[in-house]
Nucleic acid binder design. Structure first.
Lengths: 352, 352
DNA sequence: CTGAAAGCGCTTACAG
DNA sequence: CTGAAAGCGCTTACAG
């Protein structure tokens, strides 16, 4: 079915058919009704390829993230680039903005600047909920679709959220840690001083699952700054002074420091360590058995989905079916870590 | 950069430029050189959208699988359909053929019939290596690209293999089972009587990792037919008679039967069970703690990648960069199983 | 309100 | 060997 077939059947021109398809105003109501009916009856689907060829629209999408952990956002970036490459022929370009994690105002500035620079859609990993909510609402009100990436603000007026369910991530960490504990003993969790919501949710989920499984309770929660200063020293001291500790849950991004403390305290094999995210450095520690498992949430796909969803919206102007897309929680051990380390290499094979 | 710009710069027609791009024979050698140089210099990339619009080629791809386990091949099918939908505007159609697992000759018949029916590429999950290798080689020799799905035949002349590394999958099973053993004791593995290569590789990988980790050895390997008849009875009897058994590795598709035997023998919590693949039924048993973990290997992506790779080949006629694409090994527990159960639901959100 | 026409970037008979 | 022309399915000024 093409526009021309529809037009012939109705004895009108393709231009008119096209006008009703695209919802142009200047069309006789009766004609419109007829065309709509025929469209429906014939199951017409526009040829997007032809459409994008003639329209030559360009869609600029901005992706705003922050700086830490570096490797995590690099993987997101790779997904963004893959989607943009796939959609390049459709006029999509995606620009990636990395802001300083300690300067959330940089994100605010971008949010204010970008709409004036031709961007039609924004995905942002908000680095400061309080600071950004108002501006996000403003943008949405002005018609700019805003997708929240990796960190949700349910109260904000966003198109949708793409990222993980942090509470469930903490639950999975608890399930795994409970099962692999080398011996009965105490559990320690590491979190943030700041009330960063995602880390807090991980701890909540962790505790809930622990009690559901009748596992050991968390004997203490160590808290650190956002840059995770001093984790190594504190964990090292703790491991040396308290032999009862059998499990450590690292809810913030400091797995590497914990691994080093485990090694330097000679506790490999007598304390289980579970955390989040995966880098080559973390993998190195897994191979030394200083880290037992790590939980990821599809960094690559987060970037990929964000661009796809935004582009879909730009095309159809209808919001996605669901307002939340939870990424998979990936349980990673020594034996399957390679697969998660270099998604890039794997997909290079697809010549993408 | 478009063909017309190139043509203008060189003072020739777009037709000639197009001819050298597409490697048509009738082009003056010197002209060809010039055009090639300019193409290179300007970094020209053909607009695939315009190309596919004018060429209206249709690419028929056949996917041949077998019948068991049902849910596994349904997930593969979903990936196939997604890729086909995405590439529909490029003229791609993918047909999915499910053959009887007990009648591998059905696959042979399809392999012989399909090329005459307009298919330009074939992906097959070979159900009988010995029976099919020769025909696969013949097809390849005749110019038909053949991709091996889920089961490799390294000796065959195939375009590439998309599926999992079974030995590594067994290793991951061992790593997990070792760590979660509820108490020291014996390990049992379930495998096939037939020398089906993939199951054999799982057992090999499982044993190797066990000894690498200084874990318990496998005290016995139970073997079954391809339809896994009698697994429940045998495992139930074994669990009742031998209290030393603390871990079961299910290398064949019979997790459900094992779970029922664990439940009916009252051994939940005192024997750990690890196997492969995930269905709603298996998830149900995970929730009852009758199964501790299951390992999947991206059924959805297998189907998706197969179609993408074949289409890439049909477009470029150059084989993929690598001859083997190992899918991710996915470690699945109670707390993250939902994400792997319904990839379909998750992606529905993308309006695909 | 609607038809006729041009054009998006590309390929391929058709002449020459 | 190569240019001029038609056409893939669609949209959008431009007339009327």
């Amino acid at each position: 079915m093409t526009t021309i077939e529809i037009a012939q059947k109705l004895g009108i021109s393709r231009g008119t058919v096209s006008r009703v398809i695209n919802g142009h105003p200047n069309v006789n109501a009766e004609t419109r009704r007829l065309v709509l009916a025929e469209l429906e009856a014939s199951g017409y689907r526009p040829n997007e390829v032809a459409r994008s060829l003639v329209m030559k629209r360009s869609h600029r999408i901005a992706i705003i993230v922050f700086s830490e952990p570096r490797f995590f956002w690099e993987q997101v970036r790779f997904g963004v680039n893959t989607a943009a490459a796939q959609l390049g022929a459709m006029g999509v370009t995606a620009d990636y903005f990395i802001t300083d994690i300690l300067r959330p105002e940089e994100q605010l500035a971008l949010l204010r600047r970008l709409p004036g620079e031709g961007y039609g859609a924004i995905a942002i990993a908000p680095n400061d909920v309080l600071l950004l909510t108002e501006e996000i609402d403003k943008l949405s009100a002005s018609g700019m679709p805003v997708l929240l990436l990796n960190v949700d603000i349910p109260a904000a007026n966003r198109l949708c959220y793409v990222g993980c369910d942090y509470e469930q991530a903490g639950a999975l960490a608890a399930e795994i840690l409970c099962r692999i504990l080398p011996a009965p003993g105490e559990l320690v969790a590491l979190a943030l001083q700041d009330p960063v919501i995602s880390i807090g949710q991980r701890i909540t989920g962790f505790r809930r699952m622990l009690s559901k499984l009748n596992g050991p309770a968390v004997s203490q929660v160590l808290r650190f700054s956002r840059m995770a200063e001093g984790v190594y020293d504190e964990v090292l001291a703790l491991l040396r002074q308290n032999e009862q500790i059998r499990g450590i849950y690292v809810a913030l991004g400091a797995l590497e420091q914990v691994a080093r403390a485990v090694i330097d305290s000679g506790r490999i094999g007598t304390v289980a360590v579970v955390g989040h995210d995966l880098s080559h450095e973390i993998y190195g520690y897994m191979r030394q058995n200083a880290i037992d498992a790590t939980i990821c949430h599809e960094p690559y796909s987060q970037g990929y989905y964000a661009v796809k969803l935004l582009h879909n919206y730009l095309l159809s102007h209808t919001p996605p079916n669901h307002t939340v897309l939870y990424c998979k929680l990936e349980a990673i051990f020594r034996s399957n870590a390679q697969y998660y380390l270099n998604q890039a290499d794997q997909l290079e094979l697809l010549n993408l």
